[in-house]
Amino acid sequence: MSQQGWISLYRKIQDSWLWEDKPFSKGQAWIDLILLASHEEKKVLVGNELIKLERGSLITSETKLAERWGWSRKKVHDFLKLLECEQTITLETNNKRTAINIVNYSVYQDLRNSKRTAKEQQKSSEGTAKEQQKNTNNNVNNDNNDNKKINNYINNTCVHDDSPAEKSPEVGDGAQDDEAKAGSPGKGETYTQEFETFWSHYPRHKEKKKAYRVWQTRLKEKYKPEDIIKAAINYAEYCKLNNLEERYIKLAATFLGPDKPFEEFINWQNSGSGAVAKVNAPRNYFNSYGGQRKYDIKELEKMLLSRRG
């Protein structure tokens, strides 16, 4: 099958009976995401919240996509995770919505329009044979450049190998910044299955690449993957019990960072009454300093709220 060139595709195809035939194939679902993505930056109202929608992004939910594609919700979830792993999309999810950003959206939309007007064609035909040949060569070069952009994009996002990642430095208080700067797995690498299991349980899906580097550092310190995964499961339950908004949930890179807050959740258990168990609850930093009054976090929160009132 030829891999050269590209086509224009109008969003009106979504109104065709062909597009409405379900279930969608994976290829059709991928093209559908590109069609659904916003072609310009704008603000959209989601519930009572005004959200800035970047070009190449869309706000939806797994339930809506399942209905649109004729799939189960689990199949939609697994498909989106696969696209995220392949670095063709980025995801931000919460219990209300799923935000999807098409990586390199401009690669699909900003290529030069090769169609010329009838007037331009007539002008070209009136030129000398030398000028016509020059125009032809320029068009071929431009088309080749466009094809090269697409091929480079495909090759850079879909190739994998098993080469190990480099060790992230960890020195003093700046260790977490150093780990974060390490970025994604090296070109051509994939995330390990154990890390994917950790990521699927962790309650906040943001900055996955940074989290993976810190994950590798912890494993080199002889922490067991199953313990870290258990900590992620417990932390997710802790966040749910305490109704934490996403912005208050630690990033995974922080959870696994040099301070190692994950250690406190390896053997954490809830009290069974919807509150955090006192024995295994994360340490209270207000009580960590000798010689000053000890505060209970809930008590302090009530005091602050009462003062606001």
Score class of each variant (00 low, 15 high):
residue 242 N to V: 05
residue 245 E to T: 02
residue 127 G to M: 08
residue 309 G to L: 09
residue 42 K to E: 03
residue 215 W to P: 08
residue 97 R to G: 02
residue 168 S to W: 12
residue 13 I to Y: 09
residue 108 Y to S: 12
residue 136 T to Y: 10
residue 288 S to Q: 06
residue 52 K to I: 00
residue 229 I to D: 03
residue 252 A to L: 08
residue 86 E to W: 08
residue 87 Q to W: 14
residue 243 N to P: 03
residue 309 G to E: 14
residue 106 S to P: 04
residue 275 A to N: 03
residue 234 N to F: 12
residue 253 A to L: 12
residue 99 A to N: 14
residue 174 G to P: 00
residue 101 N to P: 04
residue 209 K to G: 14
residue 270 N to A: 04
residue 225 P to S: 15
residue 114 S to H: 11
residue 183 G to H: 09
residue 165 A to L: 12
residue 110 D to H: 01
residue 103 V to W: 06
residue 126 E to M: 04
residue 112 R to Q: 03
residue 48 N to M: 08
residue 113 N to T: 04
residue 198 F to R: 03
residue 282 P to V: 00
residue 246 E to W: 05
residue 252 A to F: 00
residue 252 A to Y: 05
residue 303 M to Q: 15
residue 144 N to M: 11
residue 235 Y to W: 11
residue 56 G to Y: 01
residue 180 A to K: 13
residue 267 N to R: 12
residue 208 K to M: 13
residue 145 N to A: 08
residue 295 Y to E: 14
residue 176 Q to H: 13
residue 104 N to L: 04
residue 282 P to Y: 02
residue 108 Y to G: 12
residue 233 I to P: 05
residue 307 R to F: 15
residue 278 K to L: 00
residue 7 I to Q: 07
residue 151 N to G: 12
residue 5 G to H: 05
residue 54 E to Q: 06
residue 32 D to I: 10
residue 1 M to C: 05
residue 94 N to H: 03
residue 111 L to T: 03
residue 74 K to T: 02
residue 85 C to Y: 12
residue 205 H to V: 13
residue 299 E to V: 10
residue 167 K to M: 15
residue 188 G to D: 09
residue 65 L to F: 01
residue 266 I to E: 00
residue 249 I to H: 11
residue 97 R to Y: 05
residue 177 D to I: 06
residue 201 H to S: 14
residue 235 Y to H: 07
residue 135 N to W: 00
residue 48 N to G: 02
residue 74 K to Y: 09
residue 89 I to C: 02
residue 164 P to I: 04
residue 74 K to D: 13
residue 134 K to H: 08
residue 96 K to P: 05
residue 99 A to V: 12
residue 19 W to A: 04
residue 110 D to G: 04
residue 99 A to G: 14
residue 224 K to I: 03
residue 65 L to H: 04
residue 200 S to A: 11
residue 126 E to A: 02
residue 26 K to R: 15
residue 9 L to I: 05
residue 2 S to Y: 04
residue 228 I to V: 13
residue 158 C to P: 01
residue 39 H to Y: 07
residue 231 A to P: 01
residue 112 R to N: 13
residue 248 Y to N: 14
residue 123 K to Q: 15
residue 202 Y to D: 10
residue 271 S to C: 10
residue 174 G to E: 08
residue 135 N to P: 01
residue 279 V to M: 03
